[in-house]
Write a protein that binds this DNA or RNA. Sequence first.
DNA 1: TAAAAGCCTATAGGTTTACTAGACTATTAA
DNA 2: TTAATAGTCTAGTAAACCTATAGGCTTTTA
Lengths: 142, 142
Amino acid sequence: MLSKKTKYGLKALTYMARKESKNPVLISEIAEEENISKKFLEIILLQLKNSGFLGSKKGKGGGYYLIREPKDISVAALIRILEGPIAMLPCVSLNFYEKCEDCKDEQTCSISILMMEVRDSTLKILENKTLQDLTNTTLPHL
Amino acid sequence: MLSKKTKYGLKALTYMARKESKNPVLISEIAEEENISKKFLEIILLQLKNSGFLGSKKGKGGGYYLIREPKDISVAALIRILEGPIAMLPCVSLNFYEKCEDCKDEQTCSISILMMEVRDSTLKILENKTLQDLTNTTLPHL
DNA sequence: TAAAAGCCTATAGGTTTACTAGACTATTAA
DNA sequence: TTAATAGTCTAGTAAACCTATAGGCTTTTA
């Protein structure tokens, strides 16, 4: 399951991507529109800024803005920043791999082989879906 | 990510399914062979028993045994018992649905639509994979 | 009847989640 | 120049969840 942090992050970015203008968007505006605790959203947007997805402007007329084009930001990348691994087990994670301590042989562990299959099918979707796609209300079926 | 509980549960059941005979298997045997804390495994196997997957026999010569045929137990069913929802968001879970509190309209929420897609592709794999399949060291590619 | 083996209750440290409070700093419009 | 605005940083926290561990109880069978 995704944490609320990740869900809120995706919602906030989608909200920003939907805006026509590139003017900075207020945290408080996003928080209100998307029903997210403002203080919690602060933490999330700050993390996205430190990860290179958002820029910010302080003072009056300030706010957060997208640095990259929505079509160049995959949902998988966002989930990895906000949530961490996408795989169901650390021993099959591509970006957050950890050795399986109890396993005798990871190469022949049928569970990890299965979880690789799940990982690949999930990634196939999430790597190819961008923030641009999320701005549309209805998604085209593959 | 799957919890260790789920991973251990799958490992233990796979171990049992691999046994030729239908004689009860000792918790301590599974714990030792699969490198799982015995006390933790007790809790897990008890839960699987209460869910109707395992039977048990007390006393000398006792242990746990599979009630159903390995080919009739899907991995998805086991994960739902041990872990809970398979979907990435409560609002797209088939078996553990919860309303999205912050969402204005779940029907047109692009994030939930995306997560439905992920859910379906994951379920396609997990529903069709059984304990029988896990007893093989190498899985056939779809 | 004693050993074996599962069953039950309780506990406990650690981590994560989902926030909240409050002060600080930078920016800009008036 | 200053007041208002808006992001930034530090801290803390209650509750839930995870991953066990301890110890005694009950049932069964050799």
